[in-house]
Design a protein around this nucleic acid. Structure first.
Lengths: 121, 121
DNA sequence: AGTACTGTTATATATAACTATAACACCAAT
DNA sequence: ATTGGTGTTATAGTTATATATAACAGTACT
């Protein structure tokens, strides 16, 4: 409903991340069709080619499956694989920098843990 | 010494962040000159214009002060201001999304916040 | 005056990201 | 067969990022 785009990340990347989040949150179950390229483009007021690029990437990552004339579908096993891959990516690649920032700013775990998330990401 | 550039962020932005980190870490004290445009460009094998863009931004943000023919210098009060501004930006804008990701991946925030990082950022 | 530093501007080029518009090819159902 | 739904391709233009090269302008020191 809210078309908010993070300025520090390409849209097609954010679209990809959004789908992955939906799979992880079981909003999209395995075998379910992804919302169509044209629908997503219309909903977020974005060019269809941008959506296509995001979907293409998901297909390249074997998270999603193409069926000619029908659309893209969540592969079976996608949830489990994503959980593994994304966990490792987060803890190894993203978290160290985040933790360094927290330390640098002198923020306390207590403060951070009491902050409620507002964005789905 | 290690010229590592994060692929998901423009170089000039990363250069800006690096200077800010140096100020927060007291590597650069108030009144100190920033490493010169040409030196930074040479050290990181980057175009001088890219460095200039980062420095220009720091000047626009009033964190740094220009002296004609001499260079850029850390403003007095920069540390305190940065600590305030960056703390708020992190907890309000970045942390909520990070926390959501942690939840989504089923990771324990407590564990993450008590573990030592491996990379300096 | 000359040298050696500073930031800055001017051109020109390359690539990535995003957009607008239009058309094509496949599949399912009427 | 036609309609309406998929993804996909083709052209073309804009903006942001980064590059290479060169020159300009202010300050300090010799």
């Amino acid at each position: 409903m809210d078309d908010d785009w993070n300025d520090s990340q390409p849209i097609y990347r954010q679209l990809r991340d959004r789908v992955i989040a939906m799979i992880l949150d079981r909003v999209l179950d395995e075998g379910d069709p992804l919302p169509s390229v044209r629908n997503v483009a219309a909903e977020f007021r974005v060019n269809p080619l941008t959506v296509l690029k995001a979907y293409q990437q998901l297909a390249d990552e074997e998270i999603v499956e193409k069926r000619r004339g029908l659309g893209l579908f969540v592969k079976t096993g996608a949830h489990k694989i994503l959980l593994q891959v994304e966990r490792q990516r987060f803890t190894n690649e993203q978290w160290p920098a985040i933790y360094a920032t927290i330390q640098r700013l002198g923020l306390s775990p207590q403060d951070l843990l009491s902050v409620k998330p507002t964005t789905g990401r």
